[in-house]
Write a protein that binds this DNA or RNA. Structure first.
Length: 354
DNA sequence: AAACCGGGGTG
DNA sequence: CACCCAGGTTT
């Protein structure tokens, strides 16, 4: 490139970049990989404690591959995107079985691992192995969309392809590891979504969007769609010993594989819950006590959660099974729970309802 | 309330 | 290939 994009970025990085993050120490493919997956969905400051706890419990691919899935999910609880945690473990098993416990140093082989795509594979290649590869995460998309004034939403294939072309063009042959960290840091620290610090930017002189005074117009925003409203009953079934019943959700879909409260069709009226529990779960209960409902928003719909507490007759308790467990609240809170369910159980404690 | 986000899955 | 989906945090 004639404009020395990488050179200016590296010069900035040497002075202002982040050089001391936990995954920069004992750097290896496993640590880079886990940090990249966590960083896909969460900011650095939030990731750090999760990353450190995860590394203590699962120090390498073998430990992760051999761990019970519940253990992995509980270390992910609160981060969201639980499918990524399951993919992480699945890939760790593949690394053990197919690659003898060593991460391959090859873009295609890395991409064959579940949960690793083009950008994550490139991050591992550059950060762990010092090989040349172009990344394109959210930060890099923003930097490039502004620098080249690329119009449109990056979720659209044509826009994404243009950004990948620029990403490839700018990636240097030397110091590629530092360059990759540098462009991610610039996006996170200077070329931010709102209020970018253009006056501190090493790329200002050649940034097309800046020249037009339109930095924040890039990248283009996602076309918006109305979110439907859904409703569900969530029942807190409590037995004579004060234990509550948790149900493991199906492996895919919302909160896949997490432990949650049993749900009942919102078509049931409050006066029909007792009967519904008896028929659907085979559990005889006393009359329900309604707890104030709340709304949880997902990326594509709103869910109104109406909790109800039902005491169970001691003699009719169903046994634990693979997907059903009676647990005291403290035990329940150690499992992988969806954030709103964790809040509900915690708040219910504060309100002395349980 | 809306934006954000890399990759899996599906049509 | 093009689109939809996931879920908690930040703005």
């Amino acid at each position: 490139m004639p404009d020395n994009f990488a050179g200016r970025l590296l010069e900035w990085y040497d002075q202002h970049g982040r050089h001391d993050l936990p995954w920069h120490h004992n750097r290896n493919a496993y640590r880079v990989w886990v940090s990249e997956i966590m960083l896909q969905q969460t900011q650095v400051t939030t990731v750090i404690p999760y990353f450190n706890a995860f590394m203590r419990r699962f120090p390498d691919a073998r430990a992760l591959a051999e761990a019970p899935e519940d253990d992995v999910l509980s270390h992910w609880s609160g981060l969201g995107y639980y499918a990524r945690a399951r993919n992480l473990q699945k890939a760790a098993k593949t690394v053990m079985a197919e690659f003898g416990g060593e991460f391959p140093q090859d873009q295609d082989k890395l991409e064959s691992l579940t949960g690793i795509g083009r950008s994550t594979a490139a991050a591992i290649l550059t950060q762990a192995f010092g090989k040349r590869a172009a990344i394109l995460d959210g930060n890099v998309k923003r930097v490039l969309a502004r620098y080249h004034a690329v119009p449109g939403w990056p979720g659209q294939t044509s826009v994404l392809n243009r950004l990948w072309e620029y990403a490839e063009q700018h990636t240097p042959h030397d110091r590629v590891r530092d360059y990759t960290q540098a462009i991610m840091d610039l996006g996170a620290m200077v070329c931010t979504r709102t209020r970018p610090q253009c006056d501190s930017c090493p790329l200002q002189a050649d940034c097309t969007a800046y020249a037009r005074g339109e930095a924040t117009l890039y990248p283009g925003s996602k076309p918006k769609k109305a979110k439907p409203e859904k409703t569900t009953w969530m029942v807190i079934l409590e037995d004579s010993q004060g234990r509550i019943m948790l149900e493991r959700r199906p492996p895919s879909g919302i909160w896949g594989g997490l432990w949650s409260l049993p749900e009942l069709d919102p078509a049931f009226g409050a006066d029909e819950l007792q009967d519904a529990c008896e028929r659907k779960l085979g559990i005889a209960c006393e009359t329900p006590q309604l707890i104030s409902g709340f709304r949880h928003t997902f990326s594509h719909y709103h869910l109104h959660i109406q909790p109800a507490r039902l005491r169970v007759h001691g003699s009719h308790v169903v046994a634990d099974s693979d997907n059903l467990r009676w647990l005291h609240r403290d035990e329940a809170l150690t499992l992988g729970l969806p954030a709103p369910i964790r809040t509900l159980l915690t708040d219910a404690e504060q309100a002395a309802l349980l």
